[in-house]
């Protein structure tokens, strides 16, 4: 083995080891979510022969933002309104239209267009419920 061969072998081994470390080595995740703020509860809803999802569960008293994509051209589905909330919106076709409001009290808030409806369900105690998750399973063993 001449010097050039030895260099090739050494470089190959070094690159092999390095790339294994580079690609497979454990590292802390970038966790871009760390900078996120708790607050607005955002949902994407598609309107295409009906709202999908037609039920969203939110925490009462916190801002809600629905982004509604109207995937149909039926003129009846152009206008969106809410019961118990002074919110109305014109839905453009194939575009996400934001609808923002704060449901102050727990309960069901119905939203509808000319052809179908859905519900925003406002609740309290979501964080406690999340932290209690698994308790139900433990109870029945």
């Amino acid at each position: 083995m001449n010097v050039a061969d030895a260099v090739i072998v050494t470089v190959s081994l070094a690159i092999g080891a390095w790339q294994l470390w580079y690609f497979l080595g454990r590292r802390s995740s970038a966790a871009p979510g760390e900078q996120l703020k708790a607050g607005t509860q955002e949902f994407r809803i598609t309107l295409e022969g009906g709202f999908s999802p037609d039920l969203v569960i939110v925490e009462a008293g916190r801002p809600v933002r629905l982004e509604i994509l109207r995937g149909e051209v039926d003129p009846e589905s152009e206008h969106l309104a809410f019961d118990n909330l002074k919110v109305t919106k014109t839905l453009a076709e194939f575009t996400y239209v934001p609808v923002e409001f704060i449901p102050s009290d727990p309960g069901d808030y119905r939203f509808y267009c000319g052809t179908c409806d859905g519900y925003v369900v406002a609740q309290v105690g979501g964080e406690a419920a999340r932290s209690n998750l698994g308790r139900g399973h433990q109870k029945h063993g």
């Binding site: 949902f43 727990p106 309960g107 406002a122 609740q123 979501g126 419920a129 209690n132 998750l133 139900g136």
Partner: peptide, 20 residues
């Protein structure tokens, strides 16, 4: 109301919420 059902689910030790 759906809110009553969510409450019942939580009382049973589970949760209803989240989004997709």
């Amino acid at each position: 109301q759906a809110a009553d059902l969510v409450k019942a689910v939580r009382e049973a030790g589970y949760d209803s919420g989240g989004a997709r």
